[in-house]
């Protein structure tokens, strides 16, 4: 039993070991200005955590990330359902959704800066813009794939519009929206760092920038490691929620 588990996970574990070894070796043979070995990075990570610097900045970033993503969900899901339900709204807004989904959001940051300045709000807007479109897009696609027969069943049972949303549209679409949210998590992390770089420097973005300026490469990698871990963890959580809401699908 244990042997088999070991065998199954061997490629994954082996790949991690090789990756860590490569990082360590390359790090030791490269200038500190470009790269820090894994051991130094982990040591610095521990140091930064002990001093309270890393938790403080991570918390600040998390607040930005959560606010932006939450707004994206709160706007993206209802708007997506509405666009699926109302043909005229879909036809009116479809083009903007497509254009904005395809726009590199980073390019909009200077514009947002000149419009809104350096506060918390413009940064939230950046995270929101990064995150909202996959949620919106997947929700529309999902809600539009509801079988018309099921809508007819609801009508036959004299469902009111609100009940149709609650009983049919939302539960059917939720797995699709969750897929969108999972994609949005990755984009929101990018948006978070971009906002912290280009608008007022705070959080992990600030930590990375100041560390870069003082050639503290180990701290840079430590911060990146934290972001990557958060990203992977959140995506996993997203996948779990997705499976939970898609239980009824075979």
């Amino acid at each position: 039993m244990r042997r088999e588990t070991l065998k199954r996970h061997a490629p994954f574990v082996l790949s991690l070991i090789v990756g860590a070894a490569a990082w360590e070796i390359v790090g030791r043979h490269t200038s500190v200005a470009f790269m820090a070995p894994l051991s130094d990075t982990l040591a610095r990570l521990w140091q930064l955590t002990r001093s309270g610097e890393l938790p403080r900045q991570a918390l600040s970033s998390a607040a930005l990330f959560v606010t932006g993503l939450a707004l994206a969900i709160v706007v993206g899901m209802p708007l997506g359902l509405l666009m699926a339900r109302l043909k005229w709204l879909r036809e009116a807004l479809d083009v903007y959704v497509m254009v904005l989904y395809a726009t590199p959001m980073v390019a909009l940051i200077p514009f947002i800066l000149s419009l809104m300045g350096f506060g918390f709000a413009p940064k939230v807007l950046v995270v929101f813009l990064f995150a909202v479109f996959p949620i919106l897009y997947n929700t529309i696609e999902g809600a539009r794939s509801i079988k018309p027969e099921l809508i007819e069943v609801a009508r036959s049972y004299r469902s009111r519009e609100w009940a149709l949303w609650r009983e049919v549209m939302v539960p059917y679409t939720l797995p699709y929206t969750m897929t969108g949210i999972r994609q949005a998590i990755g984009r929101a992390l990018v948006g978070m760092i971009a906002a912290e770089f280009f608008l007022s420097a705070t959080g992990l973005g600030q930590l990375i920038m100041t560390a870069t300026q003082s050639f503290d490469t180990a701290a840079v990698f430590a911060a990146i490691l934290v972001i990557v871990a958060a990203g992977v963890g959140l995506m996993r959580l997203g996948r779990m929620l997705e499976a939970r809401f898609a239980q009824w699908r075979t």
Binding site: E149, L150, E152, V153, A154, S156, Y157, R158, S159, A163, E167, V168, P171, Y172, Q247, W248, R249
Partner: peptide, 25 residues
């Protein structure tokens, strides 16, 4: 009340909730 050829059950609802649906509506 109508009974449908395609059954018209809501796949995300259990048997209980499907039967309760008409009453709730």
């Amino acid at each position: 009340a109508m009974v449908f050829q395609h059954f018209g059950l809501f796949p995300w609802k259990t048997v209980y909730d499907n039967v309760a649906y008409g009453l709730r509506m």
